[in-house]
Design a binder for these strands. Structure first.
Lengths: 381, 381
DNA sequence: CCCCGATGTGAGCCCGGTCTCAACCCTAGC
DNA sequence: GCTAGGGTTGAGACCGGGCTCACATCGGGG
C-alpha cells in the first residue's frame, strides 16, 4: 500500500519547516535544540516532524560536524572466539558512548588490513581499533597516526608507533607458564601459532607479531633461567587451516625426540591439535601435556579439562574502546590503561612428561612433579 | 613532525583542482573517471591527487549518490559462535560485493533492536540484515519494509512480513531429531532456550520466535505421530545467563519424573547444561542423553563427543548477504534462496534412557534401541 | 522618550563531493 | 567563409543538516 512507490525521498528539515510554516533555520533550531526558539514555533515544528516522521540524515549531519559517531574495528577473524569476545567488549562500550562499530575482517592478511584501514578512513570514522597482523609492517598505521585520527591497537603492538596499545603482559605469563612446564620436567616444549612466516623458525627468526614474539621471549627466558637450551625446532608458525595444524601436531609428536608438551597459541589451533592427538590415540596428560591460550567455556568440558592461560579478552575490548573514545573526545585516558593481567589456570591437561630412557644431560632425573609445584598449582585453581 | 598540528583539514577535490590548475569540475571528472577530460588535464589532475595524497570523502559521496555501500547487521550476540560464524559469512560476502558492515548487538533485547534498526536507517545503510529477537513484535521491521529499504531476516521469520528470510527447515530437522529420541525409548525430552517469555511454558503458550516455535512444532509433531503426550513441563525458556541454565538443568534432572534427554537450543546453553550435568556427577549418555543445535569443533572433543544438529551457519550468512545485495542492486535473487538444510550428526551423547521401574503406559518396555535405529544412526555419521 | 540588550526569526553560506548546463574551441563539410 | 557538431571546460546547483549573520521585535532602565 503505502510502501515503495519509486523509493520516495526522505523527509528533510525543509519539509518539516514547510509543514510547520516556519523557516528552515527555525525548524533546524527546534529539532536540534539549540539557539532561541519560541514555544509556539517549537511545538509546531515538533508536531510537524512527528507527523511526517522526520528522521535526521546522519550522513549529512556527519558531513559538517566532522564526527561520524562511528569507530572502525579491524580484526583478523571474528569467527575466532577470542576476537568475538573482544568485539563484544568493544561494541558494548561503544554503544554506551554513543558510537557505532564498523567491523572489518582481514583474515590476518596484510593487504586486506591496509585496505580496511583505508576504507574506514575514507568513511571518516572517528577512530580506529586495530589488531595488526604484523608488528613490523606498519606504514599504514603510521599514516593513520600522522593524520591525527585516534588509533588504539589491540593485542599486538606496532614497532616504533607511539600509539596506545591494549594487551596483557604476555612475556610475563609466558615465562610463568613455561617455568611451570620446566619444573614438571618438560624439556621438549612445542609452540604452535597461526602467524605467517617465510621460513622455518630458528634462532635467527625475527617474528613479526609483537604478541607472538613476547610469548616466545617468555619461553626462551624461562629456559635460559634454568640453564637449558631452547628447543627452536619445536616452534611452528604458519599453522593456518585445520589440516596443516593436524599435520604439524603429528609431526611434533613423532619426532625422534618428540615434544612432551604442546602450547597452542589460540582456541582454534587448540581444537585442531586436540583433534590430532585424539586421532593418534594419545592421551593427555599422560602422553603429552597440553596448554592453550584463552579460557573458553568448552575447555572445562574436555577430558581432562584443559590447563589454560586466561586472558581478560572482553575487558581488553572494553579497555580499547574506552581508550579510543577518550582520545576522540580529546581527554587524556582517565587513569592510563588499566592493567590487564593474564592468568595461568591449572586444570588437568598438564602433567609430568612420560619417563624416557634416553634423556640428555641437564634433565631432571625424576619425572614426577616436585611437591612444591603441586601446591603452587593448586593455589590458582 | 609532519603530524597533527591542529588537525589539518583533509584534501578535497578543490585542493587538487587548484594544484592542477583546472576547475573543480574537471578535477572531479578526471578523478571520478566520467565525462570528457583531455589527456593533459587527466594527467595533471591525477599527478596532483597523488602528490597531495587525495582521498575522496565517502560521506560526501554517499550524500548525493544516496548509496553508502554499507549494510547494517543486527544480531543478538556476536559472542555466541553461532552469530560469530554467520557474521563471518556476511562480512566475507559483503566485502566481495564492495560493501562494509556495521554490526550492532542487541543482547536479544527488543528495545535495543528497535533502536539499532533506527540508528542504522539514520546512517542511511543500503540495506539491513536482522536476526529478530521476536517474530511477533515487528512494527520496526514493518517500517523498514515500508520505506522500501532492502531487508533480509536471518534465522527467524517475522509474522506477516513478506521479507526474504534465510533459515533452515527447522520444523523438519527437529521432527527427525525428536523421532530419533523417541525411537530410542525417550519419553521425557527437555528443551532449553534463551528465548524470553513471561510465564512458564504450557500448551497455550504462544512462542515469540519463529525459530523456537518451529523447533517445538517439530517435537510436538513427532510425539503426536507416535501417539504420545508432549511433555510441556520440560520446555524451559528464559535460560539467560550461565547460572539460570545450571539451575534449570538441575531441576529438570531431579524431577520426580526427570528428563531422560535434554536438547539445548544453542552452543552457549549447551556449555552450561554440560557443566551442570558434570557437577551433578551424572554421565552422558548413560544417565541423560544430550543433543544440541549447532556443530562446533569442540563438540567432538568432549567425552563422549556430542550428537548435534548441524546448521550451515556460515552459508546462511553468505546467503543472507547475497540476497540483500541482490535486493540493493534491484536484481531478483538469482535462483531464489538456496535451500539450506540442517543435519543430525550422530556422535556419542545420545543413547537409550536408563530403565526406570515405574513407567507409565504407552512406553516401550525395552530400553535398548531397536536394531533399525542403530543402523539408521550410522547412516549419517 | 530614547537606547540597549535579550529574544526570535529568516536568508544564506558551508561541508565535499556529483552532475547539469551553457559556453567554448576546433575542425570537417558545404 | 560559415556553420554544425564533437570534444572540453568552468560555473554553479544540489544533497541535508549546522550555523553565522543581519534584521526584527519587545521590554526595561536612564
Amino acid at each position: 500500500m503505502s510502501s515503495n512507490n519509486s523509493r520516495r525521498r526522505d523527509v528533510t528539515v525543509a519539509d518539516v519547516a514547510r509543514a510547520a510554516g516556519v523557516s528552515k533555520a527555525q525548524a533546524a533550531r527546534a529539532l536540534g535544540n539549540y539557539g532561541a526558539v519560541s514555544d509556539d514555533v517549537r511545538e509546531r515544528v515538533l508536531a510537524a516532524a512527528e507527523e511526517l516522521s522526520y528522521r535526521p540524515n546522519e550522513l549529512a549531519r556527519s558531513m559538517n560536524t566532522g564526527k561520524s559517531h562511528t569507530i572502525g574495528v579491524v580484526v583478523g577473524d571474528i569467527e575466532n572466539p577470542h576476537f568475538g569476545l573482544a568485539t563484544r567488549g568493544i561494541t558494548d562500550t561503544a554503544k554506551k558512548g554513543g558510537y557505532n562499530v564498523i567491523l572489518v575482517n582481514t583474515d590476518e592478511e596484510q593487504d586486506a588490513e591496509i585496505d580496511a584501514v583505508q576504507v574506514l578512513l575514507d568513511k571518516r570514522v572517528d577512530g580506529l581499533i586495530v589488531a595488526p597482523a604484523s608488528s613490523a609492517e606498519t606504514q599504514h598505521l603510521q599514516r593513520v597516526y600522522e593524520t591525527g585520527r585516534p588509533l588504539v591497537l589491540l593485542d599486538r603492538a606496532a614497532q616504533g608507533l607511539p600509539v596506545e596499545t591494549i594487551a596483557v603482559n604476555t612475556t610475563g605469563i609466558s615465562h610463568v607458564a613455561t617455568q611451570y612446564l620446566l619444573d614438571l620436567g618438560h624439556r621438549r616444549v612445542a609452540f604452535i601459532s597461526t602467524l605467517k612466516a617465510e621460513s622455518p623458525f630458528s634462532e635467527a627468526t625475527q617474528v613479526d607479531s609483537s604478541q607472538i614474539s613476547e610469548r616466545l621471549e617468555g619461553m626462551k627466558r624461562a629456559f635460559s633461567d634454568n640453564g637449558l637450551p631452547f628447543p627452536y625446532d619445536l616452534v611452528r608458525l604458519n599453522a593456518g587451516d585445520a589440516d596443516s595444524i593436524r599435520n604439524i601436531t603429528r609431526e611434533l609428536l613423532s619426532l625422534p625426540d618428540p615434544a612432551t608438551a604442546v602450547v597452542a597459541s589460540d582456541g582454534l589451533i587448540a581444537l585442531s591439535v586436540l583433534g590430532a592427538v585424539q586421532e593418534l590415540g594419545l592421551s593427555i596428560p599422560e602422553d603429552v601435556s597440553f596448554l592453550m591460550y584463552d579460557d573458553f567455556a568448552w575447555t572445562r568440558l574436555t577430558t581432562p579439562p584443559l590447563t589454560v592461560i586466561a586472558q581478560p579478552v572482553y575487558d581488553m575490548g572494553v579497555a580499547a574502546a574506552t581508550a579510543l573514545i577518550h582520545q576522540i573526545q580529546g581527554r587524556k585516558s582517565a587513569n592510563g590503561s588499566p592493567v590487564l593481567e593474564a592468568q595461568l589456570i591449572h586444570r588437568g591437561s598438564v602433567g609430568p612428561p612420560r619417563a624416557r630412557p634416553n634423556h640428555g644431560p641437564g634433565a631432571m632425573d625424576g619425572d614426577a612433579a616436585p611437591d612444591y609445584i603441586l601446591s603452587s598449582a593448586s593455589e590458582l585453581s
